[in-house]
Amino acid sequence: MNGLVILIPVALLLGLGGLGAFFWATRDGQFEDLDGAAMRILNDEDPGTKRED
């Protein structure tokens, strides 16, 4: 029973911390371009080189 007195507030704090981190990431724009990284991995060109035709 004494363990629940410690574990319940710790679980609530961790849950609130995770929820706060999610809202911070959403507000910061982390989830705006979900397909960009998936498409960039398929690109064969290096970003620093120019393609000559």
Rank of each mutant, 00 (worst) to 15 (best):
residue 41 I to F: 11
residue 13 L to P: 01
residue 49 T to F: 09
residue 8 I to W: 04
residue 1 M to V: 14
residue 50 K to T: 14
residue 10 V to S: 08
residue 40 R to C: 01
residue 15 G to T: 10
residue 24 W to C: 08
residue 13 L to H: 06
residue 14 L to D: 12
residue 46 D to W: 05
residue 47 P to R: 03
residue 28 D to Y: 03
residue 50 K to Y: 11
residue 35 D to E: 14
residue 20 G to K: 02
residue 19 L to S: 08
residue 14 L to Q: 12
residue 28 D to K: 15
residue 20 G to D: 03
residue 27 R to G: 13
residue 46 D to N: 07
residue 27 R to H: 15
residue 48 G to V: 01
residue 15 G to S: 13
residue 45 E to N: 08
residue 16 L to H: 04
residue 2 N to E: 09
residue 37 A to E: 12
residue 5 V to G: 01
residue 48 G to I: 01
residue 46 D to T: 05
residue 34 L to V: 13
residue 49 T to I: 14
residue 10 V to N: 03
residue 6 I to Q: 09
residue 6 I to C: 01
residue 6 I to D: 06
residue 40 R to Q: 12
residue 39 M to T: 15
residue 2 N to H: 04
residue 10 V to F: 04
residue 34 L to I: 13
residue 52 E to L: 08
residue 24 W to I: 12
residue 51 R to W: 02
residue 51 R to P: 00
residue 19 L to V: 05
residue 33 D to K: 09
residue 11 A to L: 08
residue 13 L to E: 08
residue 15 G to C: 06
residue 36 G to Y: 00
residue 35 D to I: 02
residue 30 Q to E: 11
residue 16 L to T: 09
residue 44 D to C: 08
residue 46 D to C: 03
residue 32 E to I: 07
residue 15 G to M: 04
residue 22 F to G: 04
residue 11 A to K: 01
residue 48 G to L: 04
residue 13 L to T: 12
residue 10 V to Q: 02
residue 52 E to N: 10
residue 16 L to N: 05
residue 15 G to F: 06
residue 39 M to Q: 15
residue 32 E to V: 13
residue 47 P to C: 00
residue 34 L to D: 05
residue 21 A to G: 05
residue 36 G to R: 01
residue 39 M to G: 09
residue 22 F to K: 08
residue 31 F to S: 04
residue 38 A to F: 11
residue 40 R to F: 03
residue 39 M to L: 13
residue 53 D to Y: 11
residue 40 R to L: 10
residue 35 D to G: 10
residue 25 A to D: 05
residue 24 W to G: 07
residue 1 M to H: 09
residue 4 L to G: 06
residue 35 D to T: 11
residue 22 F to E: 05
residue 49 T to K: 10
residue 33 D to R: 11
residue 50 K to H: 11
residue 39 M to A: 15
residue 4 L to R: 07
residue 44 D to W: 14
residue 53 D to C: 06
residue 24 W to P: 00
residue 17 G to P: 01
residue 32 E to D: 14
residue 51 R to L: 07
residue 38 A to Q: 08
residue 20 G to V: 07
residue 26 T to R: 13
residue 41 I to S: 13
residue 1 M to F: 07
residue 6 I to L: 09
residue 32 E to K: 11
residue 41 I to W: 06
residue 21 A to V: 05
residue 30 Q to R: 15
residue 13 L to V: 15
residue 33 D to T: 14
residue 25 A to R: 05
